[in-house]
């Protein structure tokens, strides 16, 4: 799993690449949390374009960031879900909490 983090205004954009499972979420979580607490990112946008696998560990990581960001008055967004990730989002009811857009550009219009 690779992840490129960059700021777009007050939004942290997390471009994920590869497989999002329990083995990789711990390292990723601390990198993102540093940007939220130290870097003052208000919102987090997860770009799933290059993610071909996610299980419930990935789900837990996304939900955890949702809670952390919401407490600070920000929002979590997602974009570019491929079918395997879409199904896990759908089953867990994540769509009701996290708005999903077709592209990063489209998502950034809504922050």
């Amino acid at each position: 799993m690779e992840a490129k983090l960059k700021m777009a205004g007050k939004t942290l954009v997390v471009r994920l690449e590869g497989e999002l499972d329990h083995h990789v979420v711990d390292g990723l979580r601390s990198r993102i949390d540093e940007k939220i607490t130290v870097g003052k990112a208000e919102n987090v946008l997860f770009n799933f374009q290059a993610v071909d696998f996610m299980d419930s560990s990935g789900l837990g990581m996304v939900l955890g960031r949702y809670k952390a960001v919401k407490e600070r008055g920000g929002q979590v967004l997602a974009c570019s879900l491929r079918p395997a990730v879409y199904r896990v989002f759908e089953l867990s009811g994540l769509f009701s909490r996290i708005p999903v857009y077709s592209s990063e550009q489209e998502a950034l219009k809504h922050v």
């Binding site: 837990g60 089953l91 867990s92």
Partner: peptide, 15 residues
């Protein structure tokens, strides 16, 4: 505390 989503068994059951 480990940010587990609690969806593991639900996913296995549904998939």
């Amino acid at each position: 505390e480990l940010e587990r989503s609690g969806m593991g068994f639900t996913i296995m059951e549904n998939f």
